[in-house]
Every structure is written in C-alpha cells, then in structure tokens.
C-alpha cells in the first residue's frame, strides 16, 4: 500500500456507469499524480493510505468495481516529527 496526499476531488460527469457515484480524489504519490476512489471521505491535504490491484476493487465496493487504487484510511500523524522530508 502507498502513502499519498489528497490534492482535490476529481469531477468527471461523462464516465462509465460501472463507476456509479463513488467520490474520486486526485492524490499525489511522491511526485506523480493519480486518481483514487474515496469510500472514506477525505478532504484536500489529508495524508491517506491507498491500496492497489484487486484489493482496490474490493475496497471500493464490490469485486467487479473498476478501480485499481482506493483510499482505505486517513493517517493520524504524517509526516512523523522525526523525519524531515517524507520519503514514504
């Protein structure tokens, strides 16, 4: 699983029906951007844990949900006080 930061919600009106009405968030993983399904309900700036591969589908709702990255938790304290830069 990866540690990412929530940038902002992703709005996509014209999308496939399989995605239903799940909230999508733009997340920053290190230097690259990605899109994750957010069943947890985060706000921009939150540090979260994202899961990939088949677990992402299950976490997003059902076995057949088309997601390869899903938020599964909001981290309480990140980056830890000791580390200066967060090389997650």
């Amino acid at each position: 699983m990866k540690i990412c930061q929530i940038e902002r919600p992703l709005v996509s009106t014209n999308r496939i029906a399989e995605m239903e009405h799940k909230l999508l968030q733009v997340v920053r993983d290190g230097s690259s951007l990605a899109v994750a399904v957010d069943p947890v309900g985060c706000k921009p700036g939150d540090w979260v844990i994202c899961v990939g591969s088949s677990a992402a589908r299950e976490a997003a709702g059902s076995k057949g949900y088309p997601s390869d990255l899903t938020v599964v938790g909001i981290i309480d304290h990140w980056p830890p006080a000791s580390q200066s830069e967060q090389d997650a």
């Binding site: 399989e18 995605m19 990939g52 088949s54 589908r57 057949g64 949900y65 088309p66 390869d68």
Partner: peptide, 8 residues
C-alpha cells in the same frame, strides 16, 4: 489499468 480494466 490491470484486471479492473476488463470490468471497466
């Protein structure tokens, strides 16, 4: 991407 793409 991955196997989820086939569901999508």
């Amino acid at each position: 991407s991955g196997s989820a793409a086939r569901y999508a």
